[in-house]
Amino acid sequence: MAGHAPSGPHRLRNFVAGEFVDGATTFAKASPVTGEQVFEVDEASESTVDDAVVAARAALRGPWGRMGERERAEVLRRVADELERRFDDLVTAEVADTGKSIAQARTLDIPRGAANFRAFAEIVATAPTESFTTVTPTGGRALNYALRKPVGVVAVIVPWNLPLLLLTWKVAPALACGNAVVVKPSEETPASATLLAEVMAAAGVPAGVFNLVHGFGPGSAGEHLTRHP
């Protein structure tokens, strides 16, 4: 179902072009505390990664690519609001993934993740554009100025130790600057990234701006992303 996580316990799917999609195979994610399986994760195939990149490129040609800095900043503020609304769900996901204490997740990971989106929203909405004049060889004066443009589709690969916090440190500035992203969380910590996909949809982020692929490194989603043209 577009924009919402599918029903069923403990199933984490890929998120491409605004919809949750299955993988060709699945793998088990175990609790680092008990060793018991807590999630079944859909592993993205190479074609799923391709689809995610295609969706991201399409988003850059669509409404997202035509948004100005202040409009994008408002979208990021809505993401921060939705992260706070899903606070308890994100705490549960972080604890299940990492085995860290509830207190740490509640006081560091989730609040800082939301704060990152607000911080980069403010930065991009207020960042000045450099300009200066120079004297030309003929004695005239030339105005030099800088224009900032998105780089395009950004692959975001995140480690396991602070899965949501480090994810927001990468995704928030990339989106603030007008890029689209394809995210691959660590196979050890896939849950909060999947929840972030739900958050993006609920906050009205256009389809294809945020894509999520699960998997491993060599021969899996990580390699498919890092080798992708």
Rank of each mutant, 00 (worst) to 15 (best):
P128W: 08
L143C: 09
W160S: 07
P159T: 08
L175Y: 01
N116D: 08
A191I: 09
P137D: 08
D109H: 05
R118F: 06
A142Y: 06
E187M: 05
W160V: 04
S131I: 07
A105F: 02
P159L: 09
L143F: 12
T138L: 15
L167Q: 14
G140L: 08
N179W: 00
R118N: 10
S192P: 00
L165H: 09
W169G: 12
G113Q: 02
A119R: 13
P163K: 02
C177S: 13
T168K: 01
E187Y: 03
A127W: 12
L195R: 12
P173R: 09
P128S: 12
L167A: 14
N179D: 11
E187L: 04
A172Y: 01
R148G: 03
L165C: 05
P150T: 05
N116C: 06
T134H: 10
F132Q: 12
P190I: 10
R106E: 13
L147C: 11
R148M: 06
V171H: 01
T168P: 00
E130T: 15
P163F: 00
V183R: 02
G139I: 12
T168S: 08
G140S: 10
I110H: 04
Y145F: 12
V156W: 00
L108D: 11
P150A: 03
F117Q: 04
L147K: 14
A176Y: 04
A121R: 05
L175I: 06
E130R: 15
A146V: 15
T133G: 12
A103G: 11
G152Y: 02
L162A: 15
V158D: 00
V156F: 02
T107K: 11
L108A: 13
I102C: 09
R148Y: 12
T133W: 08
W169I: 10
D109F: 03
V156A: 11
V158A: 03
A103W: 10
N144L: 14
V151R: 13
I102W: 14
A125G: 09
P128A: 13
V124A: 12
V156D: 04
